[in-house]
Design a protein around this nucleic acid. Structure first.
Lengths: 145, 145
DNA sequence: TAACAATAATTAGTGTGACAAATATAATTA
DNA sequence: TAATTATATTTGTCACACTAATTATTGTTA
């Protein structure tokens, strides 16, 4: 029946997303970047958008707040990032990258871009347009009802 | 630069996959199915393909063996599935659904199909064809090198 | 201004994913 | 047939996702 195919689409989506992440993570490990893929995503976001709050950064990274808190914990342990308290709101804090974090970003960003390309072989600009449109439609279908 | 957009595609893919899963999981919880989305996927696979080994079932579900083992543990705890030892190979075992599991499948399958549709609104058959082709191309690009 | 509500961030708990290592058993081979 | 190799499954560990609960602080209002 028709509905069965929807299950299939969910399966393909999930499977592909995991494969892309796993492929990147393997490359990260092989090249000893000392970062997970998600840690790298967060660090790069901090690098490009310094001095945001946990909440704002979580939004930008597309992660929920508890997850972001834990990833930041790990980045701080590795001395790639730091939390700085907000001057006027003691509940809040600002996320910053360290010098060591900046060096890391600059070191690995081009390498990441290199092997990321592997995923998108055999696809053209038209495919990317479809990809973006379709996936964003799905996302919007499920967001704020 | 061009490479930046590849990062963006990874982001969209990951974000959409998580949203689809989360949306389904919320519906599962609201309707008190007493199953997670992944447990349901596995149970349905056992239902449709009875008497396979852990390894074979993992392959069908698109999960790795340790993950499947743990999901099966939970399904057994809920008495939806059982492990039956292989008659001639004591290393192996066969996965079966219980009566209680069958009832569960029959009860929730149509409901799942209902709310799964929400994700695919505003998309037509052509979009689904693009979706399947593009995501499978990505998957293949990263599989067995 | 004291009580209450709202907000920012964290912590806790459960489930899942990936990988490596361990265990038990079967198959092969020297 | 004893030793070795291969296979099936489970266990251990770390990371991430999501929900709910908690803590600390700020804002609001009676």
């Amino acid at each position: 029946m028709l509905n069965e195919s929807y299950n299939q689409y969910s399966f393909i989506l999930d499977r592909t997303a995991r494969k892309v992440k796993q492929y990147a993570q393997t490359a990260f490990a092989e090249q000893q970047f000392d970062l997970t893929v998600d840690q790298w995503i967060v660090l790069r976001t901090i690098y490009e958008n310094p001095s945001l709050s946990n909440k704002e950064m979580a939004e930008l990274c597309g992660k929920d707040q508890p997850t972001l808190t834990r990833i930041i914990d790990l980045l701080i342990k590795k001395e790639f990032a730091e939390r700085i308290s907000h001057p006027s709101d003691r509940r809040s804090l600002r996320l910053h990258i360290t010098k060591k974090g900046e060096y890391k970003i600059q070191e690995i960003a081009p390498k990441v871009a290199d092997f990321r390309m592997q995923a998108w072989k055999n696809l053209n600009e038209e495919d990317f347009a479809h990809f973006t449109r379709i996936l964003n439609t799905i996302y919007d279908n499920l967001t704020h009802k």
